[in-house]
Amino acid sequence: MDNLKLELKTKIIETLNLEDLSVEEIADNDPLFGDGLGLDSIDALELIVLMDKDYGIKLTDPKEGKSIFQSIQTMATYIEQNRTK
């Protein structure tokens, strides 16, 4: 799980071009949107693509996304339970 969380932080920084952030600065429970990392709606779409491309998870229900993308911790938990690759 710790490796997956580290991997997610690295991928999020790289995919979303968060140049001013480092892996160490993202806590597992930091909110990804709003006051946390401050991601926007386009970032949310990129996270959906990332889930599909890297973990074989297709998210179709927007309501699901709200709870999955709360933090690195919630993302990692969901990926562990649902990944197909």
């Binding site: 071009n17 779409l45 693509v49 491309k53």
Partner: peptide
Amino acid sequence: FPSPAVFV
């Protein structure tokens, strides 16, 4: 995998 961030 169409990229929304590139598309905009």
